[in-house]
Simulated scan of single mutants.
Amino acid sequence: MNLKFEKHDDILIITFIGELDHHSAEEVRVKIDDRIDRDNIEKVILNFSGVSFMDSSGIGVVVGRHKKISNKGGSLCIAKVSGNVNKVFELTGLYKVIKNYNTVDEAVRCI
């Protein structure tokens, strides 16, 4: 799993590339938390356009980052989810808790 970090004004956009599973979840969590804490980020967009597979560990990463940002009074959303990863989000009910956008640009305008 590779992560690409990009700042757009006060928003941190994180692009995931690869598989977000039990093999990569801890490293992903640490890298994201480090960046959020270091730059005092309160708005995060998770771009899932490059994710080919996600398991329950990936869900834990997303939920944990949502909770971390919410506790700071900020907001987190996801964008560009497709295929099997979309099914995982639907089946777990995460779309009821975390806003989903079709594009990163749409998420930037709405967050």
Rank of each mutant, 00 (worst) to 15 (best):
S49D: 02
L94S: 04
L94G: 02
I59L: 14
V28G: 03
L46G: 09
F48N: 01
D10M: 13
F53D: 05
R109L: 13
R109N: 12
C77P: 00
N47K: 12
C77I: 07
I45H: 10
T15R: 13
I11Y: 01
K96W: 04
K99W: 00
D55I: 03
S82P: 01
S70V: 07
N102Q: 08
N86C: 08
E106G: 09
L20F: 00
M54S: 09
E26Y: 11
N47G: 10
D37K: 13
D37G: 12
Y95F: 12
V28T: 07
N40G: 13
R38S: 13
G93W: 09
K96I: 11
K67N: 10
F53T: 06
V30H: 09
A25T: 01
A107K: 10
V104S: 05
Y101Q: 14
G50Q: 02
E26I: 10
V28N: 02
V51P: 01
N84C: 04
G58F: 00
V44W: 02
Y101T: 12
D55P: 08
G73E: 03
F5A: 13
F89Q: 03
K87S: 00
I45N: 04
N100K: 07
F53Q: 04
G74E: 00
L94D: 03
F48I: 06
D105N: 06
D37M: 11
S52F: 11
K4H: 10
T103L: 08
G18I: 12
G83V: 07
L3C: 08
I78P: 00
A79E: 05
Y101N: 05
D37C: 09
H8I: 14
D10F: 15
M54W: 01
G83S: 06
C77A: 11
E90A: 13
F53I: 11
T92R: 05
H23D: 07
E26S: 08
V61R: 00
C110S: 15
D33Y: 05
G64I: 12
L3P: 02
V108K: 14
I32G: 04
Y95D: 08
F48S: 00
I98R: 01
V108G: 03
V85H: 03
E42M: 07
K72G: 12
I41W: 07
D55M: 00
D105V: 00
I14Q: 05
Y95K: 06
V61Q: 01
L3D: 11
D33A: 13
L20D: 06
I59E: 03
R38L: 14
N71W: 04
N71S: 13
H8D: 06
R35V: 10
E6G: 07
K99Q: 15
D34V: 04
I13E: 01
I11A: 08
R29L: 02
D9Q: 15
I36C: 01
K80S: 12
N2K: 10
K72Y: 15
V104W: 03
S75G: 10
L76H: 04
Y95C: 10
I78T: 14
R38T: 14
G83Q: 04
I111P: 01
V85C: 08
S82M: 12
G58E: 06
C77N: 06
L91M: 15
K43L: 09
K72P: 03
Y95G: 13
C77L: 03
S56A: 14
Y95T: 11
